[in-house]
């Protein structure tokens, strides 16, 4: 038996100065993201692991997600199509899609808060790019979304709906989601590590957003008020993916404009905060 140690550690060069310029901090933050991207295989493994561990010991595993979403969509679908006096055929596909997409958004926002605090042990014992934990949160939520998509597929199949080109048209929206999600995990992850009362605040904001955003009700039910919807960032971001998939002839340019503006604001705020806070996160958790 050989005791020879043969695997060689990957080289790391560090140059950390306390009093550096904004440009210096910015370079370190860019470096963090670049190294984080290179560790994508770790982020994917950790994301999968989170899902596996969350559902360990259950026979269906992550498909419990699918079932609970399915039951919820069915229950809400029958109830609200009656309340809203809408045709089930028109309402249920809308609801299934909205509910699944919103589920992704709200879980992501909520889990963004614990992106860094959950990884406390690792952060304290090895130097890792913080971007890895952001990617991990993103991947975990995309895996959950992947399981829930089954609900949409089943509902669409029952009502024989085929989004066609809408599938392609939804891709730009999804890409924007990826960017925004990463920005949000960096921002909320760091901010919630510093201030521990943010997460409850974020959760109540999401609760309110769920009711004021057309998730279970249709934008058209608002009547004349529909023109004000693009001011709701949640609506814009939801609609850029949902509208093409519903085959409603794509998203209006106002919605896209809103989505892009809100995303630019989010990314700028997030980056500015991350550049400032990156070196301090370890002290906060």
């Amino acid at each position: 038996m050989s005791t020879a140690v043969s695997t060689i550690a990957v080289s790391t060069d560090l140059d950390l100065k306390a009093d550096i310029t904004v440009a210096g901090r910015n370079r370190l933050a860019v470096d963090d993201v670049a190294r984080g991207v290179r560790l994508w295989r770790l982020a994917v493994a950790l994301g999968w692991l989170d899902i596996r561990l969350r559902y360990r010991g259950s026979m269906l595993g992550p498909f419990w997600l699918t079932i609970s979403t399915g039951v919820m969509v069915a229950a809400l679908g029958f109830l609200y199509s009656t309340l809203f006096k809408m045709d089930l055929r028109e309402y249920l596909p809308f609801l299934a899609l909205s509910q699944v997409l919103w589920g992704f958004l709200s879980a992501l926002v909520s889990e963004a808060c614990t992106t860094f605090t959950d990884a406390e042990g690792v952060i304290r014992s090895v130097r890792m790019p913080f971007f890895v934990y952001s990617t991990r949160t993103l991947i975990r939520n995309f895996i959950a979304l992947g399981h829930n998509i089954v609900v949409i597929v089943v509902v669409f199949a029952i009502f024989q709906i085929w989004p066609g080109w809408g599938l392609v048209e939804a891709i730009p929206g999804l890409l924007l989601w990826v960017i925004d999600s990463l920005a949000l995990t960096l921002l909320l992850g760091a901010f919630c590590a510093r201030f521990r009362d943010i997460q409850p605040i974020v959760n109540s904001v999401m609760q309110i957003a769920f009711f004021v955003t057309p998730v279970i009700w249709k934008p058209s039910q608002l009547g004349a008020g529909v023109d004000n919807l693009p001011f709701n960032p949640f609506f814009d971001l939801l609609e850029i993916v949902r509208a093409p998939l519903l085959g409603e002839g794509g998203t209006s340019s106002m919605t896209w404009l809103g989505a892009v503006i809100y995303s630019v604001v989010l990314c700028s705020v997030s980056w500015a905060f991350f550049v400032r806070a990156r070196g301090r996160i370890t002290f906060w958790i």
Partner: peptide, 14 residues
């Protein structure tokens, strides 16, 4: 892991 609040750290090598 802890970035210095004052001073400088330079490390080369794995």
């Amino acid at each position: 892991i802890y970035e210095p609040v004052m001073g400088r750290l330079k490390v080369s090598g794995s």
